[in-house]
């Protein structure tokens, strides 16, 4: 007869070993193991309510703290407004011929996809990875590998589309999303200005780094980066962000870039899911 205490010890050891094996088995590929269970379907609606409450809190806190800065900001903005009015005429002329318009046109062309509007209901509680869940699932036709994007307003007032990530697992009324700055995510990209292409990967500290397939000659900080569609996960010409840093690799032949995403991943709330038929 084994004693009560010993039994618990034994169970914990066996469970620990089993879990270690499970980690190894489930990590390669999608963890579809638990999709059939009703776990997520019950918890997801509750999380949705709490997440909305959190959003309200966060916004009101921000406005509370910013009151003291408002006057200072107001003066600065007035000055800036006059300056910008002058520049505006010149800018209009420039924009007509620039890449920005071309990019926007391409994006509009690509919005023929069927999409679902969705809200983020919770985020990975840990501090290591950037994953979150959304409130649309298989009941709305969301499938694994669907693309998640966000509409954003830039300085020029153009509502471009920014890439957020892709859906990895789908439940009945919720889905897991992996962001492009997650360490397990990689995206093939194109530089809009000169069509150089390569692969972007997330880093542990939340930045996005990329390398090129071949030698590149003409790269500038601020170049716009879009998805290239290679690999057939992401559709082509989704806006990712701008190059913020260029570094030579150790062999001095190719370059490594850091991309500043168009999206603030900390403040995501509403996203769109593009349904791609593959």
């Amino acid at each position: 007869m084994i004693k009560h205490g010993k039994l618990i010890n034994l169970t914990v050891i066996i469970l620990a070993l089993t879990l270690l094996v499970t980690i190894g088995v489930t990590t390669s590929g999608h963890s579809t193991f638990f999709e059939g269970t009703g776990f997520g379907n019950i918890v997801a609606p509750i999380q949705k309510v709490f997440y909305s409450v959190g959003q309200i809190f966060s916004n009101s806190f921000e406005s509370l703290f910013s009151i003291s800065k408002i006057r200072e900001e107001n003066n600065q903005l007035k000055e800036e407004l006059y300056k910008i009015r002058d520049e505006n005429l010149d800018m209009k002329r420039i924009i007509n011929n620039s890449e920005a318009l071309k990019l926007e046109y391409e994006i509009i062309q690509n919005m023929q996809y069927d999409y679902v509007k969705s809200r983020i209901i919770s985020r990975d509680p840990g501090n290591w990875f950037g994953r979150f869940t959304i409130d649309k699932g298989s009941s709305d036709g969301v499938k694994p590998d669907d693309i998640v994007i966000e509409a954003i307003a830039t300085d020029e007032g153009v509502a471009k589309i920014g890439l957020v990530g892709k859906v990895t697992d789908v439940g009945y009324n919720w889905a897991k999303v992996i962001a492009i700055n997650d360490i397990n995510s990689s995206v093939s990209f194109n530089v809009v200005r000169n069509n150089e292409s390569g692969v972007l990967k997330g880093k542990i500290d939340g930045i996005i780094e990329g390398y090129f397939f071949s030698m590149t000659e003409d790269l500038r900080i601020g170049d716009e980066v879009v998805t290239s569609g290679l690999g057939e996960v992401y559709v082509p010409n989704l806006f990712i962000g701008k190059i913020s840093k260029i570094e030579k690799t150790s062999d001095l032949l190719t370059e490594e870039i850091t991309v500043e995403p168009a999206i603030n991943f900390e403040k995501l709330f509403e996203v769109y899911i593009i349904k791609v038929s593959r």
Binding site: V12, L15, T22, I23, T26, S31, K176
Partner: peptide, 19 residues
Amino acid sequence: LWDVFYTSGFGINTLILML
């Protein structure tokens, strides 16, 4: 709960939190 919702490999948080 943690693993079902957020982890790509099931069991990491279960193991650590259990221990």
